[in-house]
Write a protein that binds this DNA or RNA. Sequence first.
DNA 1: TTGCCTTTTGCATATTTATGCATTATTTTT
DNA 2: AAAAATAATGCATAAATATGCAAAAGGCAA
Lengths: 159, 159
Amino acid sequence: MQKAKRLPVIEKILTETFISSQDELLRKLKAKGISCTQATLSRDLRQLGVSRVPDGSGGYRYSLVEKNTSPAERETKLHIISVISEIVEAKGLLLVKTIPGNANATAFYIDNAGRNEIAGTVAGDDTILVIPRDGISRKQLHTCLEIILPGLHERLKKS
Amino acid sequence: MQKAKRLPVIEKILTETFISSQDELLRKLKAKGISCTQATLSRDLRQLGVSRVPDGSGGYRYSLVEKNTSPAERETKLHIISVISEIVEAKGLLLVKTIPGNANATAFYIDNAGRNEIAGTVAGDDTILVIPRDGISRKQLHTCLEIILPGLHERLKKS
DNA sequence: TTGCCTTTTGCATATTTATGCATTATTTTT
DNA sequence: AAAAATAATGCATAAATATGCAAAAGGCAA
């Protein structure tokens, strides 16, 4: 149950440093006061969509897909987060409210996060309906949301 | 030394099918009449820059970076190949001749292939000088070339 | 709260992948 | 052509990663 705490930290470490094994990541985490086992890490990395890619000089490194996106795209993420006013859960769906006129861009962003927890989205002018795939629990949906748009958790209201 | 034969086949298999382990790839290769061990495959995949990425539903798949490039980019590759008229080796360097006016685009393409065998390129109007990094043998350079622009091997002239 | 259900986690281990070393093939040099 | 250097490959095994299972930790409803 420190998973919610752990995932963002892992993401941060991966964007900032060159990690070439899970054990190495394990040590970095421990240095930041978070401790778990390699088994847990393996599961976390899979959930985060982290891939292991040849580093071009005989080794490997773990890479967040996000790291492959352009600076402009990373900018977008911050923008999107700033434009969301509220998130509400209803009937197993997620209602994301944005400031007027921003729903489409936000929905597009969510769609393109490539998360298989999400079946699709429907956007109006300032509201997006996020439809989870069958079999996805609320918990899983929350974690997914936290991965796509970190920090939003706090703005989430229960219905 | 069927490596030159093997690499393109591996690339093809990876773009066409969903491979989730080296053993699986090994079997597909065998089915195509190419046989080697998993050890060799491991080395091949590293050389090709193939990464293993979470498939979004609990498993993994091997993915050629190329597969992540847009259709437009793949189009470019074919275009580039069609525009190259001749390749000559000289003093450990590669002289790539294109039809007039196409050297820059081609050089750009080669640079962006992200191959660490290549230190850099210099392009004129219809000629590109490809400079290999120190310690890269001719053989390695050839294999590298074959990876970036398959099929060019045949157009390569010894100096 | 109590009991029930879901999620997270670790442990031990299976599975998968990488690699040191020796051998053979290939290329380059003399 | 012979010798020397480099590259490719397999074997055996090390190293790294994934996972079944059981235990612990929440979460939720009555």
